[in-house]
Amino acid sequence: MAHDEHDAASRIADAGRQLVDLAARVGDDDLTREEFDLALGEAGAGVVRLFGPRPRSKPGEGALWKILAYFQEHPNEWIWGDELRAVAGIGTWARRVRELRVEHGWEIEEQGDRYRLRSLDRNAEEAALWQLMNAIRRRPGSGKDRVAALLEARVGHVLTRDDLDYVAKIKEGSRRWRELRDEEGWPIESHVDEPDLQPGQYRLVSADPKDRTDPRQRLYPEKVRARVFERDDFTCQDCGRNREAAERAGDRRFYLEVHHKTAVAEQLDALPASELNDMSNLVTLCHEDHLRLTAEFQGRRRDERAGG
């Protein structure tokens, strides 16, 4: 045996004996972590001297997969970050945990510097969403274009502010959804429109241009919209449906709009804010009924002018 190999073997053996002795003292008041760290350091140094620097991992054998295997050996157990650092053998272990959770769909809960794998079953849908978001993020064009692409690809599904910011590649990229709604009429819901959504969650109801909102919905401030919808229990005051009832009937293109009882569309732009936002003049309607009632109201006004 070469001198270096003999020296490495001796260091590993000495460290092993120290660890056995320390394990026998577990529970003693005078036992310290530093003693374990020194023994482990000696063992690690001996391994490096024996094998040389750690080689590049083969596919499927890297730090990420070592961490995953460790989680799978200890499901639903809290694991300290230092444990994962030791298992991974790299300083960037926390990034690998995030990759397992976000990119690969593993349900890993974090609490301070502790982590646990909640399920041995991977969330394939979350992993697919991450892959989709990355593909859209790499597209050329504006942040608004990429937000639009993600909303269209996930029509009917809830997306978060973080999702929209990520594909936009700009800080507060989630504001682009409001531009799509207010400037282009995309029927995008937030917690203001639907009680099943939390602040920072958004959902595109339909990507069909025929389902675009009344462009004058932008005239009503969010606080006014919220008050009207809450007062009317998020229910269309004409057909009596809410989202749950509409979906039970197979209508997945249902969403709410604010309807002004006395002013036709072309008059809304000129109304003073006090009259435009007067709660007694506003009512909750679904998009379908809003279109119909607005058309009927405008028809009556035309008939009145013609008759007058």
Rank of each mutant, 00 (worst) to 15 (best):
V102F: 07
E103T: 05
E103R: 08
E103V: 04
E103W: 03
H104G: 00
W106H: 15
W106E: 10
E107L: 13
I108G: 06
I108A: 09
I108M: 06
E109P: 02
E109S: 10
E109F: 10
E110T: 12
E110W: 03
Q111S: 14
G112W: 09
R114E: 11
R114L: 09
Y115F: 15
R116Y: 08
R116H: 12
L117W: 08
L117F: 09
R118V: 12
S119F: 09
S119Q: 06
L120V: 12
L120T: 13
R122H: 09
R122I: 10
A124W: 05
E126Y: 07
E126F: 07
E126N: 13
A127I: 08
A127S: 13
A127V: 07
A128V: 04
L129K: 15
W130I: 03
W130A: 15
W130S: 15
Q131S: 15
L132W: 02
L132Y: 02
M133Q: 15
M133D: 01
M133S: 09
M133K: 15
N134C: 07
A135T: 14
A135P: 06
I136T: 06
I136A: 05
R137S: 11
R137I: 07
R138V: 05
R138F: 05
R138H: 10
R138C: 05
R139C: 09
R139W: 07
P140Q: 11
P140G: 14
P140K: 12
G141T: 06
G141Y: 02
S142H: 08
G143Q: 02
G143I: 00
K144W: 08
K144A: 07
K144V: 08
K144M: 13
R146Y: 01
V147W: 06
A148C: 11
A149I: 01
L151P: 04
L151A: 01
E152C: 12
E152Y: 05
A153F: 04
R154H: 00
R154T: 13
R154P: 02
V155Y: 06
V155S: 11
V155T: 15
G156R: 00
V158P: 01
L159W: 00
L159E: 07
L159K: 00
T160S: 15
R161C: 05
R161D: 07
R161T: 13
D162T: 14
L164E: 06
L164D: 02
L164H: 06
D165S: 07
Y166N: 03
Y166Q: 03
Y166T: 06
Y166S: 03
V167Y: 00
A168L: 02
K169P: 01
K169V: 00
I170S: 05
E172S: 12
E172F: 08
G173M: 00
G173L: 02
R175P: 02
R175E: 11
R175S: 08
R176Y: 12
R176N: 14
W177D: 09
W177S: 09
W177P: 02
W177M: 10
R178F: 09
E179Q: 12
E179H: 06
L180T: 10
L180S: 10
R181S: 12
R181H: 08
R181N: 00
E183W: 00
